[in-house]
């Protein structure tokens, strides 16, 4: 998700883990409103550090964010809950921006490479739909 503002917040919230208030390892870069939605859910939400690039994917043309088949089985329920709790599946607040990125790409104002930088999951969905596995190949390189 493109986040040009963002804030540094606690992964394990201060209410539940006061001792971790000033612990560097507990800080994450997050959109403020997402952190607010997380609230005290703590590790019931996926830690951004543990999420792999392909655990979530964008569904086209609906632009919904869904859990992909590559989430480890033991993590699936947590991933689903993360989508729900943080309103990431199809809340207007995320959909509006996804739509705007996708429109820029479709209108030709943003290249696929540009889309990859700004909205990598939408770019991955575009590649998947057109059968271009560019990202995959580059990733397998040592």
């Amino acid at each position: 998700m493109y986040e040009p503002v963002g804030s540094v917040d606690h992964y394990l919230c201060v209410d539940n883990h006061r001792a971790l208030s000033y612990e560097w390892g507990n800080y994450r870069f997050a959109a403020e409103w997402l952190n607010k939605s997380k609230g005290t859910a703590d590790d019931a939400i996926l830690d951004p550090f543990e999420v792999e690039d392909d655990w979530f994917e964008i569904h086209l043309p609906s632009l919904q964010l869904v859990v992909s088949e590559r989430v480890p089985a033991g993590m699936r329920a947590k991933a689903e809950y993360t989508l729900k709790r943080l309103h990431l599946r199809d809340d207007e607040r995320v959909i509006r921006q996804r739509r705007a990125w996708y429109e820029l790409y479709e209108a030709g104002d943003l290249s696929l490479e540009g889309l990859t930088r700004r909205a990598p999951l939408i770019a991955a969905a575009v590649r998947k739909a057109s059968g271009t596995p560019a990202r995959r190949r580059s990733r397998r390189r040592p």
């Binding site: 409103w33 607010k36 207007e92």
Partner: peptide, 24 residues
């Protein structure tokens, strides 16, 4: 006491936890 976070506009606030609508 809710954590403060900007929601940007009316629509953002309506679907936020503060008002709790699924859609506006």
């Amino acid at each position: 006491q809710e954590q403060w976070a900007k929601q940007g506009d009316v629509l953002g606030w309506l679907v936020s936890e503060t008002f709790g609508l699924a859609q506006a």
